[in-house]
Every structure is written in C-alpha cells, then in structure tokens.
Amino acid sequence: MSNNTIQGELLAEPAARAPTRGDRSSLAAQMLLSLRSVPVFLAFVVLTVVSLLAVFAPFLIRADPIAIDPLQRFAGVSAEHWLGNDAFGRDVYSRLLFGARVSLIVGLGAAAASLVVGLIIGVVAGYIRFADTFIMRVMDGIMAIPSILLAIALVSLTGASLVTVLVAITVPEIPRVVRLVRSIILNVRSEAYVEAAISLGTPTYRLLIRHMVPNTVAPLIVQGTFIFASAILTEATLSFLGAGLPTEIPSWGNMMADGRMYFQLYPSLVLYPGIILAFTLLSVNILGDVLRDVLDPKMAKRT
C-alpha cells in the first residue's frame, strides 16, 4: 500500500492480479503460514473444538439437554452436572453442546442461502441494465430496515421455527451480497479481457460464467465467513429477545434468555453461553480477516 513512492519501476507489472490456478498452492501455503500468529492459531483451535463438539454432541452429552428436573433446579457443579443445572433443572453442559450445533447450522445455512440468492440477483442486476434500477431500489428498501427489526418481525409473524429464523436472518443479508456481486460485475464488465471476449463473439452466458462470475468467488467466500458470524450473532440476539427459536430448543441465545431473570443470583447461566458465543464469533472473525487478507487483498485494504 505504500509502494506508491516507487511508481511503475519496481512494480513494472501492475497486473490486475487475480488468483489463478498457478497461484493456488501458494494460497494454501499463505494460509498455513498465517497460523504462526498466536491469535490466528487460537482462533483456529477454538473453531475446530466448537465444530467437533457440535458434530459429536450426541455422544458427548451427560444428560438429555431438554429433560426438565424440578428437583435439580440451579443444582451446582457436580460430577454428574459438569456445569450445573439451569432454572428448569436442565444440564447446562449438555445444553451448551447442543447450542453449538444450533449455531453452526444457522450460520452455515444463512451463509449458503444468502450467497446463492445474492449471487444470482447480483449478476442479474449487474448485467441486465433495465433490471438493475428496480432490483437495487428493492435492495435499498430492505437495507434501510434495520436487520434485527426485519428479522424480529418476520419471526413473530410466521411463528418461531428453525426455518423461519433462517429465512429471517438470510433476507437482510441478501442486499449486501447483491451489492458486492453487482459492483464486481460492473467493474469486470469494462475490463479489456471481457471486451475482448465480446468482440470474439462470446455469447452472454459464457461471458458471465467464464469471465465474470469467477471474479466474485474469492470476495464471496470472504463475505460468507462474515455472514456466518453475523447469522450466529443474530440468532442469539433473536432468541435472547424472545423472538427467535422456540424456547425448548437449546440455543445459546435461548439459554441466556432463560437465565436473565436469575442473573443477579446465578450469573453463570447467562455468562457461560455468552462467553462461548463471544469466543466463537471472535474466532470466525479472526479467521475471516485472514481469509480476506489472502484471498482478496484489494478488499482487505478497503475495510
């Protein structure tokens, strides 16, 4: 970024560098290299552990995470209940493991859905001129509604379930993906190699698939990690406010919502899921930054 002082000389080839097949192995190497930094390594470990716990939760739990035991309300830490019990006598440890599951499902689902839908709409907006204005108006409208309110309203209107929560989280993320894709398509459109392909008589669909869409892949992967984090956060927020997943589902947000009333007496009921949530998000964001630095140096500079 500060190479400007040498102008063209050293950088005699200011090529529009995009990762090519030849560069791919070095990409992997760069990512491995970044693991040498302590925070990145820790983030990698945390995320791996959380994912493993989530995947193998059914084999690791100590008790049924939704079984209520009125006699064991607020039971303390014991050999049986590693992290104690909650207000309904449910095992906190087991609920935390299942909470990881819920978070990962929501995160992955929302990221995948918003990327796919956003990519399609974005390509249409970026390439078809007359659709552009209309699509972007609608996107502006959705973007202007604070995402949490949009999600709260959608969930409360359609009833709480995993699917509605997923939809409610995905919809507000779509406009950002659309904008990203559209701006890339618009930029690439005036690249000389795209114009060259046009004058070679390349039909539109091939132009898009071969020359334009591949440019969106790296930025979309990066964007995907941030949507993943933001979806986990939004689910927790919704559940915490009581407008998320059905209360019997053991998600971190629901656990915090349940624990709120007893916070002054049993702060751990809120703090345990809260802290795990924070560490998970922190890890995803750190790894997302690394991914961006490696895959998309141009965008890394910008934000």
Partner: peptide, 27 residues
C-alpha cells in the same frame, strides 16, 4: 477484431493462453 492498449488487462488471468486464443474459434 481488436487489440487493446493494456496488455496486462486484456487477457483473462484465470485462463491459459491457449484457452484465450481458441475462445473465438470455439464460439
């Protein structure tokens, strides 16, 4: 056909030279 000014931008960096050259023919 056209030849452009900036040789660094007028070839798709993701395609081999061969792919770029035969694009018109296969079209």
């Amino acid at each position: 056909q056209m030849v452009f000014q900036d040789p660094f931008r007028s070839l798709n960096p993701r395609l081999t030279v061969g792919e770029s050259i035969i694009e018109g023919l296969t079209n």
